[in-house]
Design a protein around this nucleic acid. Structure first.
Lengths: 244, 244
DNA sequence: AGGCCATCACTTGTATGATGACTGATGATA
DNA sequence: TATCATCAGTCATCATACAAGTGATGGCCT
């Protein structure tokens, strides 16, 4: 009757990890069944009562597990009818989840993803940007220059410049996706102290590359813009590949 | 005391919409506060008891609301301590959410996002693919040809070819992101009947473009691969821009 | 017979109270 | 001073009850 978790006063060494909550165990189990296709889209999940019996937990736990799957877009729930495996896969979100890579490879692969995205984004921006959007790009560039002048790391300003370019495509999804990548790319404040020293040497180069990208976009030269962006991002990538 | 929803036996015309569940109303409200920055990262949310009082709902509802925010990566909950606005934004997922666009513009913008992603992906694949990965690409191409020979729509096979290329980059994140875009791009079965007629005329062109991409990758010609991919995707984009 | 509708069984949504488990601080103790 | 038991606050889980939506069944009326 009492779920297994409350009986774990046994030795339980080495388990420093915060023991998963029951609802997470169950939602994880169901998630696996769905993702592996053992529960086909459209099929009805067991009712709450059935799960209570099968898993031997309370309704609170079952409901929280199903609720988590619902916000993950894996199931849809209808009062009075039941819970069903979602058929519309566009409701599921995209998550970058590290499949066991070390920190350096992890960040390198993310930067590659970013490069793939931004190279062509620059070309699109060059073709389409409005005057206002160009001003935004110039503003971001100036803000970064200002930060550099104050001897600040300027990571945020750097990234804001890139976002401004993405916005100049006029495509919200493109801009939003780059914004999503931001937190993975921008170093945490904790890391900045030691990095800012090394970085300072590159900032000048960085700004030159930025200017090159900016000019190509301003001239509506799509090919040059994407090439400049590729060069720019490849350099950053190489730095990470070496020292991480 | 009794939450407002249970009193809605009043007229309530025009509200065909399935009334949001209480937990969704509350999680939505909290989500707004967090995203607008009115609840700064790291700050503690009201305790369950406080929310019960403030919102006038039961623990059940409060817990499910907070639980939803947790699986959205917006808050982190610690037993015995409380719930806090998340500081690590990398836990939040990426969602394509239509900001009020009509269906045609919506799909066009998604296809643009895809184009941005895949053009440079093709270049990367050309530079890096292994022999096995090249075989996978060829296999996908053959599978599509087979489907076409049977006069089938071949949407899945088409997309599988693109995914195979993304996998040939050796970068899981790049491949996963394209896979994520799949459900947005691949027409639903319901739409296929009417489309397959028109499409049949283009399939031949499609396969020629595919072959061109494939050859460029096989020859490790990154520039040609990305160019062929751009041409290929731009054509599909134009078709959608016109008729949608 | 055919259409309308009350009813019922089943399911999820919400409320409530009790208990277990974890955290951080407080204060007693050696 | 350092250690540890204790305690209040908080989330986690359990149990129970009732509200509300859904679909089917079957009776009723025309």
């Amino acid at each position: 009757m009492t779920p297994s978790r409350t009986q774990t006063s046994a030795p339980q060494l080495g388990k420093i990890r915060s023991r998963s909550k029951l609802s997470e165990l169950i939602s994880g189990q169901l998630r696996g069944l769905i993702l592996r296709g053992e529960l086909a889209p459209g099929t009805q999940l067991p009712t709450e009562s059935e799960m209570i019996e099968q898993f031997g937990v309370s309704r609170t736990v079952v409901r929280e597990a199903v609720s988590a799957l619902k916000t993950d877009g894996l199931v849809t729930v209808h009062q009075g009818r039941g819970a069903f495996v979602a058929t519309d896969r566009t409701l599921q979100p995209f998550r970058i989840v590290n499949p066991g890579l070390n920190e350096r490879d992890h960040i390198v692969q993310i930067l590659e993803l970013r490069l793939c995205h931004e190279v062509e984004t620059a070309a699109l921006a060059a073709e389409r940007h409005t005057a206002d959007q160009m001003n935004e790009i110039d503003g971001a560039l100036a803000a970064m220059a200002e930060a550099v002048r104050h001897d600040e790391p300027a990571y945020e300003q750097d990234f804001a410049f890139h976002v401004a370019i993405a916005q100049a495509t006029g495509n919200l999804y493109i801009a939003n996706f780059l914004s999503y990548l931001g937190p993975f790319i921008i170093p945490r404040p904790a890391l900045r102290a030691q990095m800012s020293r090394d970085r300072r040497d590159y900032v000048e180069t960085l700004q030159m590359e930025h200017a090159e990208i900016r000019d190509a976009i301003a001239e509506r030269n799509a090919e040059a813009a994407s090439r400049a962006m590729r060069t720019h991002l490849t350099r950053g990538l190489e730095l990470n590949r070496q020292s991480g």
